[in-house]
Structures are given as C-alpha cells and as structure tokens.
Write a protein that binds this DNA or RNA. Structure first.
Lengths: 359, 359
DNA sequence: GTGAAAGCGCTAACAG
DNA sequence: CTGTTAGCGCTTTCAC
C-alpha cells in the first residue's frame, strides 16, 4: 500500500485493464463498455483514486477554471455578482478564481496576467482598464465584461436607462421636481450612462436636474458631497451608489437636515448596508446575481466555441426598493431644523473607513 | 510565425541552446551562466514566451496556489483577512484561491475537496467543519486554521481574552455594572471563548454578566435578541459580533430605547459597517489583516518544509474602538422614552437582509 | 470496445 | 555550466 496518490496506472493494474481505458472511463464514459466502466470506477474508488486536474489540463488545456476579476473584493457591490458567477461556474464543474485589484490598475493587470495561463476564460467585473487593454486580454482568452459596453467585446449589462427611470418616477411620484445627481468617478462607465439617461429622462418630465461631483464612490465621498450640497439644495437627490448616499445622508443629518422630510435620497446597487442605516436607503437594484451568472454562462459558451457575436446583448431589468430615505416633497422650502442634539460622533480617523465602489 | 504559444523548445531552438537550459534560465537562474541566461531571457521575450505554470506543476507539484476557505465571502468579517492573506501570498508569488462555503458545511467540504489537488496548502478561516474533518484535510495538505484552537493542527488566533477585557474595561469605565452577552452560534469556537473569558473576567471585577441566545450572527439575529432583552434589561450589552449589535440596536431604538443613554452596546470585529450606522458602533477589532497574513506566512513555511510544531502559537492583540454606541451608565434605571415618532420602517421582506458572520 | 504508444511543457537527475 | 534523457499523470490517435 503505497502512500502516494494513486494514478490511472495503479487503477489499471488493479482492474486488469489498460491505463487508457481507465482514462476513458473517467473522461469519456460513453466510449467504454458500461460494465468495464463500472468495474473501473469501483476499483478506483477502492484505491482512493481521483483524477488529477493538473495532469488533465496539460494535454487538453482544460483547467476547469475561470477568473472573475473585481476592482475591490471588499466592495459589497460584488457580493451578488460573485455568488451568481460562482454558482453558475460550479454548476458546470468550473472553479472560479477570484482576483482582487484593490482599486489599482497595475494590480489588476498583473493579477490578470498571472491568471491567464491557468484559466480558460475571464469575467471582468467593473474593470478599471482601458478599452484597448481589455481587447488585448480578449485576444488571449475568451472574455466577458460586466456592465461596460465595449464594441466587439461580449458583455452583459443592466438596463441603466430603466434604473434611472425608476428612480425618477419614484421621486416624481412623491412630488419632487428638482433633483441633484451626486456623480461617481468619471472613469466609471456606468456613471456616464446614468447621468446621460437622467438628463434626457428628466427633460421629458419637466424635472430639473443638476449634477455635482465627481466624488469617490464611498461614504467619505458622500460626506464631501453633503458639504457642497448644503449651499445648493434640492428636495431630492440621486446618488451614484449606495455608499455615496449613506455618507451624504449622515453628514446632511449632522447639519440638521431631516431625511426624508427635508431631502429625499435614492441610491443605486441595493447593497445590504442600505438596510442597516437609519433611515434605510431607497435604492435601485441591478440584477447583480443574474449579471454574474449570465456572464459565466456566456463565457462558458464562448469557451465551448460559440461565436462571440450572437446578436446585441440585452439589458437586464432593474428594480427599485422604496425605503425610508425617500418621502413626499416638502410643500414649501423651509430652513433645516437647527441641530438640537450634538451631531453624532464621526470617527473619521478610524481605519477601514474607505470602502470604494466601482461599476 | 506560429500562433501557438511558444514553449521552451521554441526558445531553445531560437537561442541555440538545449531546452533544459532554457528551463533552468527561468526556474534556477543561479545554475546558468549569467550571459547565457540573459541571452535566453532576451530571445524568450522576443518570442513572447512565458512559463506555463501548469506544465511546471506536473513534475514538481508546485502550483504556486494556496486556498483560503471562508464560510461566506459576503461577510465583511473576512475582508481584512482576505487582504492580508492575498498580499502575503502575492508577495511570495502565490495565487490565492478563494473558496466560499456559503454557510454550508457540505459546500465547504466539496470546495475544499476540489481545491486540494490544485493547491499546495490551505488556510481555513472560521470553518464550520468538525475537528476530525479538519485533521483529515490536514493530512492531505499543509494547513493553517484561523481563530480556532485545534490540538495538533497549526493555527493563528486573536487574543480573545484580551478582546473581552477591553470591552469590559471600557464599559466598567463608563460606570456599567451589569452586562448582557448576546451569544453567537454554539458551533462558533470564538463564541465559546468569549463567553468563558467574559464570565471569568467579570467575576474578578464585581460585574454581573448574563448570557442570552444563541442567535444567528446577523442583523436579524440582533433583532431577535432585542425582543428578549426587552424584558431583561441591563445598562450594557456585549454582542458576539457587529452585525448582531447593529440589528439589536435598531430594534431597541424602535422600542423607544436610546443608545447609548439607556443602553450601551459593544460589538466585535470592527467591520466597516460599524461606521455607517447611527450611532456608530463601539467595537473590538481583532487584527484581521495580520491574522490573514500570518496564516499565509506560516502556511508557506509549512509548505517549505518547516516543522508544524514550532512552539505554542501566540495570541494576537486586539484593540477597542470607542464610538457612539457606548456611553455613561444611566444614574438610575428609568423607563424607555415612549415612541414619539413612528418606528423606522423595517424592510424585513427585502432580500439580502441576511448577512451571517462566522469567526 | 480496448490496448499500445506518442506526446502536452516542463523539470530533474546524470553525464560530460 | 550545459546537453541528454527520462519521466510527471493524463489524453488521444491509431490499430486490433
């Protein structure tokens, strides 16, 4: 009883067949007599044999691994994307290699470079790379991009126009006619999409919109935004993402404003934190999980040899969750209530306060 | 110009040397003449050659990959652990395969089983597996466990006794003499440690402690806890983790209690969300990042052939961050202020509300 | 349906 | 220091 992990040769000897037959029994069971196959599996099990994915990968190139590249794993935005992607991958026997760029383009490229030889395909979730860099990668491995529309590179996107309509409709329904958009990073494709959609949709509905920013897509960015908003108020605000919305509200409240009585705020992404704040944040949810799983499905199709240009990709529908941060527009503009209780302590110096969001 | 990825043979031919020399030039540069090495690297670069990690792994078994197994990637608790681990791994040229059990023991075992053949070692962060199952894995690959003390299995742990002392000292300093501990999952090793430490430390300081629970380590669990706490109040509460603390406070406030005026609450882990709530949560921070990096360092040492029993592992120090959820003990017990404004909407039905925490 | 034999790309003795 | 020669464990023609 050797203590080395058994190989097909060990199984072959024990089963009295050729190694190639053992190989087939595992990789192409249909090409083997059912009885021999069963027998082989039995003796293999008895020996504790398990196929070695590395050895298999060498001649075939099939590593059964795909990479999911994120800009920052610690961003709640990715949670559902990751889940969706991993589930879809696991279902097909694929392992997902999660890579984390930590918000650095350099690291992103490095980790992708390192992943390329080991994976069969790549999903890029909110990459910071340039279009040309992305195309470069796409040349080396099948690739799907999430939430970014690059010509000639297959992608899956949420319906950004719809998400903006939902936010605006919600606010208009509450009587708001003036909206401020808290802009996210200029580099974020989604940010540009949202603002464009917002402006054109607002125009159709006699709603005034204004844009401020850009701000980093973090709670800290939101606080900044509140400082500037103070002098240019509107009854309603749409923030690039939830973290921005949260930071914004916290600072606003410290100024004596009431949310939603004085100001209504809508965020995007519907990260879980929206339900842990007071008030909870009204948020438009992209179908994150579906984006993740669909990206992987398409990627596996690509790997399987599907043609990359299977018609225009569809935009996945979004949904608004109405919560406590939005309410009826104030009937007339009034001064914010003065601060009665001391403003909540803000621990600006405590670490871990940053928590950027991409997309 | 072939469009296949070049191999050492292509490089060898182009450079006029033997393939093995090319191999050496990359894997053991010291065993090759500096000039030839330089020449080889140059022609390799010209051809666009890159070593194939898969092919290298086959004869050597060195995949340059380690696995980091988590119970739930979407739990903020892991953020810093992941960062610490990945950084330490990357520094040594290792790629980290993040596995996510999604809170299921079955999935955890499956994903570990699948990872084993591809990785050189494994870090288990707050596993749900039994000691014996863990030992089983440890037999197959070098293994380090985070925050769990298993005999004969190397591990790195935070100083749980210290963390509890910090929480108690903080509360006692504010005048509290009665503490309720909101218990986490029975299965969580850390939970048991904390309660034990709490009881013995409180005994030395004439502080009364009581334990309630167990509760799931989520915001929802915290709400539950608040229901029960309502009828058995103390001026101070220590929660198993931050999410529990957050859910607890939110419900408490909806009952008309004021935090920290009526009740002071301390959490554990110092996840970023503690700074997004009102009040912000006072929390004891384990050195998560260090735990992650130290786990990886030790693991790589193990892989490198270090003996697993290098003395007793030390317990890493923790630190308390005082924030708005704790304050001076009320001078005398008083009724909670009645609810003047409607309790904040709680969107119990909205998805994504669960967000368990392990540790 | 099954066996024999030739690799996949790289490393590792062993000579020279 | 460098070339020769076997493999690592599995897949895959090509015969039988």
């Amino acid at each position: 009883m050797s203590d080395k992990t058994p190989t097909i040769y060990d199984v072959a000897r024990a089963a009295g067949v050729a190694p190639s037959t053992v190989s087939r029994a595992f990789s192409r069971p249909d090409r083997v007599n059912v009885d021999t196959a069963a027998m082989i599996r039995a003796t293999a099990a008895a020996l504790g044999y398990r196929t070695n994915p590395l050895a298999r990968a060498l001649p075939t190139g099939q590593t059964s691994m795909i990479a999911l590249a994120t800009a920052d794993i610690t961003n709640p935005y990715y949670f559902e994307i990751i889940r969706g992607a991993q589930d879809a991958a696991a279902e097909r026997g694929y392992t997902t290699l999660l890579s984390d760029a930590q918000e650095s383009v350099t690291r992103e490229r490095e980790s992708i470079e390192r992943a390329i030889p080991t994976v069969e395909g790549i999903v890029l979730a909110s990459t910071r790379m340039s279009d040309s860099a992305i195309r470069m990668v796409a040349k080396q491995r099948p690739l799907i991009v999430i939430n970014r529309d690059i010509t000639d590179v297959p992608h899956v996107v949420a319906d950004h126009a719809m998400s903006v309509r939902q936010a605006v409709d919600h606010l208009v329904g509450l009587g708001h006619r003036h909206i401020t958009y808290l802009s996210g990073p200029d580099a974020a494709w989604v940010n540009a999409m949202r603002w464009r959609a917002l402006r054109s949709y607002a125009a159709e509905h006699e709603v005034q919109v204004r844009r401020v920013g850009p701000y980093p897509p973090t709670a800290t960015g939101g606080r900044q935004a509140a400082e500037e908003f103070r002098d240019h108020r509107t009854s309603a605000v749409i923030a690039y993402n939830d973290l921005l919305a949260i930071g914004f509200i916290r600072r606003l409240v410290s100024f004596g404003a009431r949310v939603p009585q004085d100001v209504s705020v809508v965020g995007f992404d519907n990260i879980f934190v929206t339900q842990l704040t007071s008030p909870e944040i009204t948020s438009v949810a992209p179908p994150l999980r579906t984006l993740g799983s669909m990206a992987v499905h398409n990627l596996l199709a690509l790997i399987g040899g599907a043609s990359p240009t299977t018609g225009r990709p569809l935009a996945l529908p979004t949904r608004l969750y109405a919560r406590g941060s939005t309410g009826a527009a104030p009937t007339r503009r009034r001064a914010w209530r003065s601060v009665t209780s001391p403003a909540p302590r803000e621990s600006a110096t405590t670490p871990g306060n940053r928590l950027p969001s991409p997309d």
